[in-house]
């Protein structure tokens, strides 16, 4: 059995000390060692986008990143998206407008969309399509996802909420 490494990871703004086998991916450490099971997996080969999280603000497939390489970087997961008990506008819009059906691709898409809106607060439909093209969804046919992201952008503009 390979010896564990001990690292401090910055997850959703909190420093987490965690001990894990050095071959583990960020996905595995989040889900298995930090019990943050909100981040999903659909292939563990970088094909489906379900495990997308933000690392230093960039969407990144947690299944392809070794956790040991994430020390000192800001990791954001779906668990950190809401502000206390107030949903992030993206979360609220996805829940209201059918952006989530089974909900399995949802955390990855929410994180990807958050990165998009941070860079482009008013993205066109075309930009949204491009941004989430690496996130497969087998339920929705994507339209209600686009509409959810557009609605979130609208609500954020009105409320002047930064992404």
């Amino acid at each position: 059995m390979m010896k564990n490494v001990h690292r401090t990871l910055q997850v959703n703004g909190e420093a987490q000390q965690v001990s894990f086998a050095p071959y583990k991916t960020l996905l595995e450490v989040l889900r298995e060692d930090l019990n943050l099971t909100g981040t999903k997996h659909g292939c563990e080969l970088g094909e489906c986008g379900a495990c997308a999280v933000l690392v230093d603000g960039q969407p990144l497939l947690a299944c392809l990143e070794l956790a040991v390489e994430c020390e000192g970087r800001a990791i954001e997961t779906v668990e950190g998206l809401a502000n206390g008990s107030v949903l992030h506008p993206l979360q609220a819009a996805f829940a209201d407008l059918g952006g989530a059906q089974c909900g399995y691709c949802t955390p990855g898409i929410l994180m990807t969309a958050k990165a998009l809106l941070e860079k482009e607060p008013e993205p066109s439909r075309e930009r949204i399509r491009e941004a989430i093209s690496g996130n497969l969804c087998r339920c929705t046919g994507y339209q209600q996802i686009y509409e959810s992201i557009e609605e979130a952008a609208r609500r954020m503009k009105e409320a002047k909420v930064p992404a």
Partner: peptide, 20 residues
Amino acid sequence: RRVDGRAKVTGLTKFADDVV
């Protein structure tokens, strides 16, 4: 909004592999 919609967007829906 579907009655289980909030859990789905907060990562709280417990799928089988989330059972530990």
